[in-house]
Design a protein around this nucleic acid. Structure first.
Lengths: 345, 345
DNA sequence: TTGTAGGCGTTATCAT
DNA sequence: ATGATAACGCCTACAA
């Protein structure tokens, strides 16, 4: 059991100084070619890897970005992480990973742990319940920039990446209208989510735009649990004039809603058509995927969030004026027919 | 934007030495009460936070565990990561995350990056293609323990956590036999995977145990892509005596196989019944989940892998004799009817 | 071209 | 009870 070699070891074996080794390894101009090759070869032989921990001392940089999401098991987030990781790898960053399980306490603990690790930056999609932000603002003290994605905070003073669901929702209502549907219901998510508000506004605008009148009986809410969604469905189906089309908050709600409809012997996408948000690959394996979806590009959001982070970090390094402005990237949420899955086992 | 204060600053302001400050802050016994209070108060006023990185650096410990998996978007692995993260949090460890995308080159690069970050240990589920292990053995050599899970290497000298699929497969064949099925086909995964070999052996043993004869026409292979699975199905359905039951390598293969069967107007789970491995929650949303599954407990495997890692690390710290033995945890793979999904949105 | 020395923040080991 | 100093691995300004 040997220790990982240091430049000191290499220097000793080659009977040169540590600075020579350091220079040789970093392709410094003022170094003899012979020496350089000799050092690099031995370094490789010994399995040398620079100690990022030590480098942190000099540069005060860890090349680690913390990533906090609610649930990794949700395909939306696992795809987002892929986008984040992919962009990170390209720029030699690594990612420290944590889940909040939609619990603000847990979120706080995870953020705390990342602060301790001195991540260079934090990318986070907020927990459903989060309404205080002090644990995140505390990062400012450490000059750790925070980029929010998808579940972003309501205030302006933050870097954010998200999809404009308002427009996507207006489009979706329009699509249904054009197909001839008039009784368009909506199962929305928790009020406090920004995403719920946007969808709601889009729904209202979409309905109004078609000269229909907004009927609040057609609007239900779910806390995203299966029971809650089933309950919303129950209410909708009990209406004197039940809906002919149902927009659901996301694909999970869609699947739960469809499940309930089937139990009631409703012919899904025939008696009632279902449309949704997210467009997750798994829906293509289900019996009744949404007819159309508002695509939210989880991979793209993750990728953009990471690229934004890198931009922010490099501006910091370049010592530009202490930046008081915040970046906001609003990706378009486009309407798409459901996608084929590609999950390969 | 001022920098965080260090013990040095505090020492200077109080005109005491850094060691005194260090001791005062860590409640060292040999320190004057007055001094202690004075230091602690000023530290609080200045918003002092110990620099964990500096401490880790000195201790040669990062409290970070690297985790490398093929694809996070696969539910099996996202659940495994959850188990890993959960156990990690409990012991104040954080996890550095990377995907291999089933590409050995990428796997090597990720492992490399983690070595650079000086992770205290590495938990990995191998890429499908990995057949060289030097990049991983190098870590063991350098006192970075490696724990494999699920996709484990074929050799003995490694810490591993995995499910015994052999027994699970024997049980599954038995279950089908008891239900009256006799023409039991098997779509296996790539030969080189340990998991494929185990399933194959279990299949052969299961068939033989029921006094049936093994018919190699009933055994097909898939590289786990949709096309490959469809092709396997095509061959099986073209047989003079097509199967009445099909065992698939995992739930993704299952879904692809079912998809193909439906296109051929076969009544799934009626004309032909399907059973599978993994038992992922998403299958409960599909039209035809496997009748039974061999549960592989991804969350449990992840959790056990992390706990094993912590055990190994603490043994190392306790300076027990340089441990030359390896831990192997073989979890039972049990037969279960399909589970209700709980994904909550 | 190469070597020497100081410093990043902290703790441990001496000494006082 | 407190202070001085070395050490962790690396980089870099300065010296040779």
């Amino acid at each position: 059991m040997e220790k990982l070699p240091t430049i000191k070891e290499i220097a000793k074996q080659l009977k040169v100084s540590v600075s020579t080794v350091s220079r040789a390894l970093s392709d410094h101009p003022r170094i003899g070619l012979g020496t350089k090759l000799k050092v690099q070869q031995l370094a490789k032989e010994m399995g040398y890897e620079p100690n990022a921990q030590a480098i942190f001392f000099k540069q005060k940089k860890t090349y680690v970005i913390g990533v906090v999401i609610p649930y990794i098991r949700e395909e939306f987030f696992s795809q987002a992480i892929s986008g984040i990781e992919s962009a990170a790898m390209e720029h030699q960053y690594t990612i420290l990973f944590g889940q909040s399980y939609d619990d603000p306490e847990r979120e706080k603990a995870v953020v705390e742990a990342m602060k301790k690790q001195r991540v260079d930056g934090l990318i986070i999609s907020l927990s459903k319940q989060t309404n205080r932000y002090d644990h995140l603002e505390a990062l400012n003290k450490f000059e750790i920039p925070v980029v929010y994605f998808d579940r972003v905070p309501p205030f302006k003073e933050a870097h954010k990446v998200f999809c404009n669901l308002y427009k996507g929702t207006v489009d979706m209502v329009g699509w249904l209208f054009n197909k001839g549907y008039r009784r368009i219901a909506f199962i929305n998510g928790p009020d406090k989510l920004n995403a719920s508000k946007e969808r709601m506004n889009g729904y209202i605008e979409g309905i109004s735009k078609q000269k229909l009148k907004v009927d609040m009986q057609m609007v239900e809410k779910t806390d995203l649990s299966k029971e809650s969604t089933h309950n919303a469905m129950k209410k909708l189906l009990a209406l004197k004039h039940p809906p002919t089309a149902i927009i659901t908050f996301n694909d999970y709600v869609h699947m739960d809603a469809v499940q309930y409809a089937q139990k009631q012997n409703i012919l899904v996408n025939k008696d009632i058509v279902f449309v949704s948000y997210a467009n997750l690959p798994i829906t293509s394996y289900t019996a009744f995927p949404p007819l159309v979806s508002v695509e939210q590009y989880p991979y793209g959001q993750g990728e953009r969030a990471m690229e934004l982070m890198i931009k922010i970090l490099s501006e910091k390094t370049d010592n530009k004026i202490t930046n008081t402005s915040f970046y906001v990237e609003e990706l378009p949420a486009t309407l798409v027919a459901y996608q084929q899955a590609t999950a390969g086992g």
